[in-house]
Structure formats: C-alpha cells, structure tokens
Design a protein around this nucleic acid. Structure first.
Lengths: 217, 217, 217, 217
DNA sequence: AATGAATGAGGATTCATTCAT
DNA sequence: TATGAATGAATCCTCATTCAT
C-alpha cells in the first residue's frame, strides 16, 4: 500500500513538465522495449520514439535503466488500477473474487505483451529499482489475498487461511501464464476458453469442501 | 518427441571433441549467465570460465547466441531427463501424476536458477533457436499431458479431456512458479510447504467430481 | 602598465550590473576551478555556484573560456595589488626589495591555490586571452625588475643590469615555487622557514660583490 | 629510489608486445598532448597517432588517464636518465654539481615542451598515479640533494645542510623555469645566456661563505 | 586444433550553448 | 533582464568476431 515510489532525479524543475515528458518517454520506450527487448533498444531509438532529442531525454532521466524502471512502474500502475476497477467493497468474498479474477484475465489478455516484458526484464533493473517493482507486484497480489480472506471470513470461500497468500499468487500466475505461454496455449484455446477453464477450476476448488495441504502431508 | 535438434556448425571435424568442448562451454557459460544474465556476460568471460581461449571457443560456435542456445538446450535436457526418471509406465494415471508432480516440484526446487534463466532469456534467442527451445518446453509439458490422459482413460483422474493440455501447462507453471516468485513466496512458505499445498490443491481437484469449464460458461 | 584589458562583450547594457554579475561569476567559478580544475567544472556548476541561472550567466559572458579569462584576470589583479601594497617609492632599492620579497612570499603563501591554478590552466585560454594574461604576469614581474634597477642605481644592490630582468623572474618563481612544490617542500619546511631561507639566499647574493655570468662563461 | 611503478593492467599477455605497443602509444600521445593538451586530445586521435585501432589501443590501457600516466612516466624516466648521464661518482661535490646543473639546463632546454606539459597536466592524473609521478619528481630532485650533501661533506660546497633539500628544489625549478617562462625570458635571453647567468648565480653563492637563513631570522 | 591480438562499429552519456518565453 | 528547457555533436569505451600464426 506504500506509495513510496523510487523517485528519479531530473534536471528539469517544473514537475508538471517532468511528468509530461516522462510519460512521453515511457510510451515511446514501452513500445520499443516490447518489440525488441531492453538491451537491444538504443537510447537514440528511445529518444526518437518519444519525440525528444537525446539531450532532452537525458534531462529527465539519469540512465537507460531509469527508463526501464519508468516503464515497469507504468505497467504495474496500469495493471493495478485496472484490476482495482473491478473490485467493489460491498460484494461478498466469492462475488468479489469472481469479478476480480475475470477482470484479471481480461487485463492479462489485453496487456499480454506488457506483462511478458515485465517477466523478462525486471531482472535488468538495478537493485533498488527492482525491489520497488517486486514490492509493487506483491501489492497487486495482495488485492487477491484480501479478497480471499474476506471470503474466508464471510464464509463464501473455503480455504485454509494460511494458504490464502499462496492462492493469491496462484491466481496472479494463472492470469500471467497466458502472457508467457500463449505461444503454446493459443494453439488449442482461445483466451475465452482459457479464461473459462481456469476460472472454473479455481472457483470450483474454492467452493468445494476440504482443500489445502492435508491430504499429501 | 522430435529429436530434430537445431545443429550448430563447428569448424572442428572430430565430433567427439566437439561434444566435449561444447559441454565445457555450456557449463562455464551456464554459471555466468545465471549470475549476470546473458547480455551482461561477455564472450571473453565465457571463454575464461570454460577454460578455452576465445579463438578456440569460436571454433565450436558461430556466435554468442549459439552459446545461449546450447545452454537453453542443456537446461531443458536436464529438466526433461530428471522428470522422466519419475515416470513409470506401469503406474496408474493418478499414481503416475502424483509421482511426476512431486518430482517436478523437487527438480524445480533444485534447478530454480536455471528455470528462471530460461524464463528470462529465451527471448534473446534468434527465431529458429527459440522455436526449438519452445518446442522442447512443449515436449516436457507433453509428459504431463500424457499422464493426465492416461488417468482419464483408466478412470483414476477426473478431467475434461479437452482441458488436459491446459492442466498440463498449469502443472508445469505451478512448479516453475517457485522459481520466479520465490522472492515473495519464500517469505511465508518453505519449499516443502509450498509443494504440499500446491500438490494437494492439484490432486484434490483432479480427484473430485465435476471440473472444467461448465460452471462459469 | 598597459591597462588594455581584453574586454568581453556582454548582452547587458548597464555596465554597473555587468561588473557586479561578473564579480559573482568570478568568485563562484574561482572556487570551483581550484577545487576541480577548469575542464572538470561544468557551466551548470558555475552558474549554480554564482547564484545565476545558466541563461543569465550567458548574458554576461560568451563562452566558458571567458570565465576562465575573468578568473585569471581576477587572480592577477589580486596578486598585483597585494604586491604593490608593500612597495613604497621612498625606500632605497635594497629596502624596497626586502619588503617586496617578503610581501611576495606572504601573498604566495596565502594565495597558493590560486597561483597553482594559474600555472596549470593558463594554457587553456584562447590565444588572445592568454597573451593578455601573460602580459599581466610580465607586468608584475616588472615591479621587481624596477626595484632591482633602482637598487643598482642607488648602489644598494649589486647586480649586472642585464641580469635584472632575469633576477626579477627568479624572484617571482621563487615565490610561486611554494605553490607548485608545496607537496614536497612542506614535508621538511614550514612556509616561514622556506621564506627565510630563500630570502636570505636572494639578498645575500645581491648584497655580495661580483655576481652574474662571468665566472662560468 | 623505489622502482615501484604503478603497473597498468593490459588485456594482452605477451609482455614484450605490451611494452612495444605502449611505447607506440606514449610516443603518439606525447606529441598530441603537447600540441593540444590532454583534455583536448581525443582517444581516437591518440589511436590514429600511434598507428593502432582504437580497439587495439584499449587492449593495452584501461582509460585515457592511463595514457596520461604513461606519458608522464615516460617523460620523467627520460629526464632522470639524461640527468644521470652527467653524474659521475668520482667527481668532487662542486664539480659534480657544476656538471649536473649544466646537464639539467641542457635537458630542460631540449625537453622544454615535455616539462611544461608535466607542469600543466600532472593534476589531471588520478590520485594514485599522481602520487607516483610526484614521487618520481622528488626522486630526481634527490639527485641534486645528494650532490649538494657530498659537496658539503667534502668541503667543496658551502651550504647549511638543512637547506640542502631546498637548494635541490631551487636547482630543479631554475632549470624548469625556462620551460614555463620561456615566453618572457626568450625575449631578452638566449638559452645559453640564461644558463650562464643562472649557473653563475647558483655556484657563486654556494662557493661564497656564509649562506642560509641566518641573516633574516 | 589452438591461440590471442586486432578490429571498429556501435553504445551510453555529457555538456557548452541557444533561444523562446 | 532573467530563466531554464532544448539541442546534438562529441566523447570515452566495449565487445563480438576474425584471422594470421
């Protein structure tokens, strides 16, 4: 929940302008990074893509890695806000989960390339920036965790509370999986089918009695 | 099952030697790639790590990307053979699945770094090599698919046959997930707990009646 | 004696303002140049150090080299005026020399960093500016030359008149030497000892009979 | 006396070759540095001047500053060895001094540009390298100090022993002075006249009775 | 087969200076 | 007058690959 964003220093003072230019940079870079990957994209290409001169671009960032960070941050923000759209506090846990999962799959379908990119390039971030990006990922996962806990409390979901976090991660991955296995999955399933199967599995299980680590122990 | 390995040309004729040298290269490079990533590792470093001179190394490969390919291939072979160890044809589908899943989680736990690497750097392969690596991934997934189908046939597993492939992918990802979410999961779960929860979920579901895409449709 | 200062054009008309701003620039830049050297100091840093915006600063100069020139000029002016403080026309040559030399050493001790800077960066000036700075150096040397000539005329100093200019340079260098050899000299001598030894040598020689180029010829 | 040269790492293993190439680099760079100064010389220019490709050059150095160091080292070595040529152990202190001073002035006359360069660019060296270069300068100064001490011991020179080091520095500077004040001195004196006057002054003083710091104390 | 020196295109970044506001 | 955002040529350095020995 902490809004402590790693802030990147800029030579330019006007914060409004900084924000606008950085948005330009992010949008330009994002497209390129997804197309060619971070390492194979040159700073010159980024500058061109965002309509700034190389010098101007460097007024708003300190290094190419900063651009990567900005892009990751942007994608995560986008993912988070779009997921939150679907979460309404008045719903029951089960309803809330169903909606959130549906939205999650929808967003993953739409932002497929972005999520794949995050998966592949987060590791290229410097330490600190990476930590921030990962914490953001955890935060988003936390949305599902909270919903699951609510469902446990209001009795609409059946789940060992100590497995709630794990299940939240499972849900996250189940959505993201479309992005990094699409090359194989799409041969047989449409996104809709995929979503339907996965959702069914998920909700069926969470609605059925007796789950969670005791059978195999 | 296609053994059509993309073969990399070598200047050296003696195939025995080629194989030995390439093994050297793979082992040296693998360590470096995992430590620093493909792009941040230089060919000089690889040569040093595998105890060959730069010149000699280039007698056995044509480009740095070839090394990446060799490493990916090596990892996949390793993964596949270790998974296959646990698969015995005489078991029932359910037994076979239980064993394969257990082994899968075990291997993922042990080869964590390797799998993460595959996730992050496959994209850096040139087209053709990437296709091969992906086909290999599909092949491994196929092992689970086959087990699932067997279980469906012999009645020990309950699953919509058209969801078998999807479930196979789910199993694959569930194992790999430990590699790319360990940073978050390990805060709360040990690998053993993780394995237990996930396995339980999986098998519980596949043993329970009525799964697969109808509820939500 | 020539007051033909190379004048640097300014966009600003008000000469009072120009002078004030340039003083700001010189003081800010001087500190930075001494700390980091001319080349490693950026115009942005200079602007910041003198409390002006980059744009404003450039209203008062035409190039970074202009700043260097202004700083050199400032240092030379400072050196000259402080040296002249100690020169009184009514003294005999010998007395005058003793006082001037003492003051010279004192000033060199105090302005050590400045003098060192002049030694190291004058060469970075453009042709014309360099010529001016050198002429200024000659002018200061001229002060000693005049004193020596006076001493020759009034009989209080013994020196081949044709060696007067050379001896003036020697005196100059003897003072400046503390600035560029302090790293070695200060290990063994304090500034006071240094001054005493050097002054003694100098005056002893100029008071003794028969010096100057005949013995060795 | 310590021959502990700061050794610069090279990618190339053959030490003979390293030495040869570095000599090329030094000679090429030296000329350029003297012409244009260190900062205004680009690495490409250096590479061209020494007949190596930029890549090859960087096999033998690690940074542009390394080249500066090599050049400074080269100049100092040259200066030292040429000065030592003139020093013979069997001479008396006085004779030895006369010869050394003469040689010193001769060398300074010939290597004028080199010495000036050392004066102006030593400061651009990184810490450690600078320390080495300065220690070398002290070492050369030590040659004169030893001669002076010898002269004091054998009675051929009259000098307060505690001023010996200072006088050694004076001699060094007196020679170098031609390099950084030639622009003014040469207007009136030829190098020969200059040498004659300075030598006379120096030796006259050291041969006369009673010098050194007591008169003014 | 093995070696490692040579190559140079290409990349990230800096910074003096300009100019519209 | 003052400002500071914009510019892009210029710079140092890296590194995959080649090829003579």
């Amino acid at each position: 929940m902490s809004r402590r964003v790693k802030s990147i220093p800029s030579m330019v003072k006007n914060p409004r302008l900084v924000e606008r230019r950085r948005r330009q940079i992010v949008l330009g870079a994002c497209r390129l990074f997804i197309e060619k990957g971070f390492h194979k994209t040159t700073t010159r290409e980024i500058a061109k893509a965002c309509g700034l001169s190389i010098g101007t671009m460097y007024e708003y960032i300190q290094s190419k890695e900063d651009v990567l960070y900005l892009v990751c941050e942007y994608i995560h923000d986008e993912l988070e806000s779009r997921l939150k759209e679907a979460v309404v506090d008045t719903d029951s846990g089960r309803e809330s989960l169903a909606k959130a999962v549906a939205q999650h799959f929808r967003v993953m379908g739409e932002m497929s390339d972005y999520v794949l990119f995050i998966y592949q390039e987060t590791k290229s971030l410097p330490q600190e920036a990476m930590r921030y990006v990962l914490s953001k990922e955890e935060e988003i996962t936390g949305i599902f965790e909270k919903i699951l806990c609510k469902g446990i409390r209001d009795g609409t979901l059946r789940l060992d509370p100590s497995a709630a976090k794990l299940m939240a991660h499972n849900i996250m991955v189940m959505g993201q999986m479309w992005t990094f296995r699409r090359w194989a999955l799409a041969k047989q399933y449409s996104l809709e089918e995929y979503t339907r199967y996965q959702t069914a599995w998920l909700l069926h299980d969470l609605t059925t009695e007796d789950t969670g680590g005791r059978e195999n122990g």
